[in-house]
Amino acid sequence: MATVLAIETSCDETAAAVVKKHHIFSSVVSSQIAIHQPYGGVVPEVASRRHVETMNETVAEAIAQSGLGWSEIDGVAATCAPGLVGSLLVGLTTAKTLAMLYDKPLIGVHHLEGHIYASYLEQPDLAPPFLCLLVSGGHTSLIAVRDCGQYETLGQTRDDAVGEAFDKVARLLGLGYPGGPAIDRLAREGNPQAFALPEGNISLPGGGYHPYDTSFSGLKTAVLRLTESLKAEGAPLPIADIAASFQETVARSLTRRVIRCALDQGFATIVVGGGVAANGALRSHLSAAASEKGLRVIFPRMDLCTDNAAMIACAASAHLSVGHHSPLDLGVKSRLAITDVMSLYQSGHP
């Protein structure tokens, strides 16, 4: 298996890591959360500028912590899609420069494939096929994982990503950014049954509902209307109860879909990836439901759920080990379906 230095800059974290197959030699994350907090969300141009400032130190630290020299590194990887174009460019340009300088293969990595591979780092014995629930600030998908680079999207959000819904509801409740951890903390003090909120089912033209697709914009609007109506009554806003009810609805909605999908499609293992995989309610709901159905569920540890370069390096190691590498004129893409991941690679000698 190949040892890879990887860079992740798809959004607001500057990250670098050195990984061999499922073993993490080093993983460094330089967070921009504090910089974007005053704006209530990530400002793309600010993120790009900050990546330039922190990138080289982050890479140097990852290499130093790994204890490896360049002769022991087989390839250089970077997230190249999907994400913020300006941010992706900083990471990919750095990776290209290192690959060119040290004459190493370049491996472009799909960000969502990285989140899938975080589970391999958590459970080294994990092997496909399995079902991945990918939940983050930019994505909500149910993905069938057949093999390295072989994916099928079975379900997805029709509007807001679940992490985006957390951010928007947190802003409504005055909890600041990022919304996920703030709601999770506050929900522990609230009653999850206090308010009934809609799960957001997707109607099908022929009647009935889509079994796996989700929608969160209706839920977000329902929370807005609820807070407006409670404010109109003049009583103090029961923020903890609203947060708990919202989180409960999200966890129930996702759990119902992922369990049904796993059973329908014959998957015995479910892995969860993305920042929302750190959510307490989702972990408890899904673990209980999976256990009841005899399904194995894997949640990566917290630092592997949020954006990091170890997961990118892990995915790159798998690709490089089977001969996949990217051309030096590889570009970045703000959007790229995970089913098109093999468009990033060519085979043979770099």
Binding site: S48, T93, T97, L101
Partner: peptide
Amino acid sequence: SFTGTRIGLVTARTLAQQL
């Protein structure tokens, strides 16, 4: 150009740091 300038700077900074 913000993006163009960044690409050159990132490349040059990385080369100079490593070399």
